Simulated assay, not measured.
Amino acid sequence: MKQISVLVLAIVLMAATVTNVFDDLSFTEDDAKENVIASFGGGFISSSYEVIKKAKGLPVDLKVAGTRQLIRFAKDYSKTSEFQKKYTKWRNERLGYKKKKLGIPNPMKMIDNAIDKQLNKADDEKRFPSNANELIKQRLQEFLSTSASVDFNAQLNGSMFANPEYEAKSGQWKMCFRAGKAVVEAAREEAQAWLKELE
């Protein structure tokens, strides 16, 4: 499995509703919905190597059109009650929130748990805000910041960057470079428009 951000997957993947690439890449809308949650929640998305390989083989114009479509798909899905419900469930699982078990409560344990919950609440909210839109804003800003610094004229020595500074860059930076300027610019335009809607 290869892990990349949803916006970078959009860059490499997406001619979805334009040419029905979901079918061509064996990547369904249900897969996309699940990946939207994982992507914005964890900052990455999982997709098989075969999906990535097929996506890379698309012509640039389809990648550009597809990038716009996938980001719009994610934006539209994020507005649904289904997304909000799944995000809340995902968040609670990651933060270790569990339903209370039936039984006789231990008053001291209840007090300890209440104190711990108050102390951890601010940290939990920073890691995974209860409002999904806040997390989406963070991820969009992270993508815009990373993608703005990509040098599309960087030289490669085989599969590695000639400049050691570039070789030390994040996986997302490198994926943006490999996706190409036209595709990244389209993704940035869509991300900026989405961010503007959220602010």
Rank of each mutant, 00 (worst) to 15 (best):
V8K: 00
A10L: 04
M14H: 09
A15M: 04
A16G: 13
T17H: 11
N20W: 15
F22K: 00
L25R: 08
K33L: 10
E34F: 05
V36Y: 01
V36S: 01
I37K: 08
G42M: 07
F44K: 00
V51N: 11
G57E: 09
V60G: 02
L62W: 15
G66E: 10
T67E: 03
A74T: 11
S81F: 10
Y87T: 05
T88M: 13
R91M: 13
R91H: 15
E93L: 11
G96E: 13
G96A: 07
K101Q: 12
L102A: 10
G103H: 05
I104S: 00
P107R: 04
M108K: 01
I111F: 02
N113Q: 07
N113I: 05
N113M: 02
A114G: 04
A114K: 07
Q118K: 08
K121E: 15
A122P: 01
P129W: 02
S130Q: 11
S130H: 12
E134K: 03
I136A: 05
I136L: 03
R139E: 10
L140R: 02
F143Y: 11
S147T: 14
V150K: 03
D151I: 05
N153H: 07
N153P: 03
L156V: 11
S159E: 15
M160Q: 03
M160I: 08
F161P: 00
A162Y: 04
P164D: 02
P164Y: 08
Y166E: 00
Y166I: 01
E167K: 04
A168Q: 08
S170E: 05
Q172T: 14
W173L: 07
K174E: 06
K174P: 05
M175V: 07
A179I: 07
A182M: 11
